[in-house]
Amino acid sequence: MIKEIENNNFNEVRESKGYAFVDFNATWCGPCRMLSPIMEEIAKSNTVYAVDVDLNDELATEFNVNAIPCVILFKDGKEYKRSVGLKTKEELEGMID
């Protein structure tokens, strides 16, 4: 299941252990909406968070997100790798070592 970031719960990501995917998206972005079923698939075996950039612009700024969809892979609470644009499940899961 994908956890929606809201009410400043991003600390969950910062404090997470191991890998976590964070999907920066927006409702008006077609490729983002198309990515969401792919992220649902990834969430079956991984931790996945979703950030609506319109509701969380401070996070988009903090992580220098200026193109969406942008999926950042966190490792032990720190940015590890990122991927921009609509990508396949294999490409996204391939960011994990």
Binding site: W28, G30, V65, N66, A67, I68, C70, V84, G85
Partner: peptide, 17 residues
């Protein structure tokens, strides 16, 4: 630079600029 200033989708990313 894709995602760091380069974009292929103006409607997706225009608002960041």
């Amino acid at each position: 630079l894709i995602g760091k200033g380069l974009s292929f989708c103006a409607t997706c990313d225009g608002n960041f600029y």
